[in-house]
Amino acid sequence: MIPAAFDYVRATSLDDALARLAAGGGSAKAIAGGQSLLPLMKLRLARPETLVDIGRLAELKGVRRLGDGRVSIGGLTTYDEMLRDMTLHRYGLLADALPNIGDVQVRNRGTIGGATAHADPASDMPAILLALDAEVVVRSVRGERAIPIAGFFQGAFASALEPDELITELRLPGGREDLGSAYRAIEQPASGYSIAGVAAIIGARSGDRWGFCSVAITGVGEHPYRATAVESAILGGASFEAAAAHACDGVTVASDIHADREYRAHVATVQVRRALEAAAARLA
């Protein structure tokens, strides 16, 4: 219930935060809303020596449209703020997912940057970012880099983020009128995390073929992933049901007391089909 002792610094600016993270040399952790980190610290599963509080860096908050039509979500934007942002409501999959991520209290504190950095293998937002082909903008004293989401998640609670880096924003491609999207999940009832959560975007239909399909899955593999086999099947003309059968191709499916491999793989296919159907329905 009570974390192990640590030192606390409150960053006064982004540069200050980055300097402190760099000085921490891997034993410092950034804390924003704390909804992922503090539960681990309370169980003493995480024991940072220094916490750098970035929660007040106003420049990292909020949703804005970029000049190139993309949408930027500041790393410190909470789920609740995203839920209230009409720009984001245009993304069907966000509209589906946001009201069901965590609970009200978690959404009031939890940030998209924090959730992304935490890289929980069953978290919903990573699947959405993957499906959207988002870009993770990170900064450190060494400079800024934009990491394509496709390579960001590397394992359970492991990502391409270096210990001295902060996620400053997530950039989403601008909404396309010819695409529809949806999110469908079956949740582990105790934790609320997904046993299988599926973000799907589909559209650009031409004749009897889909010209665009993006499907990402969380809760199933070691980390959230793009279901490229599903996407290829759809683009190749397969039915949703037939394509969904490829949901777990090439993935080592997780198993726990709530869902074994067989069941988890099965509901992944069900949710892929349902997400695709819902995404297509939005298009119509």
Binding site: Q188, A190, I257
Partner: peptide, 13 residues
């Protein structure tokens, strides 16, 4: 105890 916390023991909501 694999259902060792409220994260793994599902209480009705």
């Amino acid at each position: 105890l694999l259902s060792g916390s409220m994260l793994d023991y599902a209480l009705p909501r």
